[in-house]
Amino acid sequence: MTCPFSPLSLARQPFFKSSGFSSRTCRRQESTARRLRQRLRIKPEPSFAETIPTQDHIIYNPPSSAPSVYHTPFKFLPQNDKRRQRLAAATTSSPFAFSAPTSDNSTSSTLPPPLRAPVQKRYHLTSADFDEIRRLRIEDPLKWSNIALAKKFQCSTVLIPMICSVPKEVKQIREKELEDIKQKWGPKKRAAREDRARRRERWGRDE
């Protein structure tokens, strides 16, 4: 370009002037085509590897997704359903084994870890304990709530209402207490609680 004041050179001037901070050497960018191509050169999935090149076979490599609820789990199939035998045969013979329909507990180490420690039901309460629970409830129904009784007798809170019920007056007192607490909530707390309950409803509808 002969003219030194061409619009192109003028436009470029500030760029060269301000380049004092960076090095003048040509730096290779990360985003060159070759680099990207090298990066994307991933080894294929093992199921695509030609294990049996001599004969035709089906490659089964579905994308990861949530399982469909329309596929009945093996355990939920009725005893006379034909899929039981087919699934059992498929898991034993095929290399692509999905949910294991065996019921042996030998390889429990392969199962994912449980969220909570499994609780063993103890069935340790006797009829004398039941009588004691009823007596305590009659003695002081306000003090001996379901939670307190369950804690004392080391049983589930679900069990206590099966043994003895709460008097109506105590229920009303509790409801009154809860209402008083709710009266003290501000609009933010109330809205947050309502939103939480609404979200929980959506869990049940799988939305």
Partner: peptide, 27 residues
């Protein structure tokens, strides 16, 4: 036992457990 009945994903452990149980019941 060793059989998976249902699976669920969620943003909390409680939600995922809830969804998994609901999906098992749907199944």
């Amino acid at each position: 036992g060793r059989d998976k009945l249902g699976e669920g994903a969620g943003s909390s452990l409680d939600e995922a457990r809830f969804r998994a149980a609901a999906n098992a019941l749907r199944g």
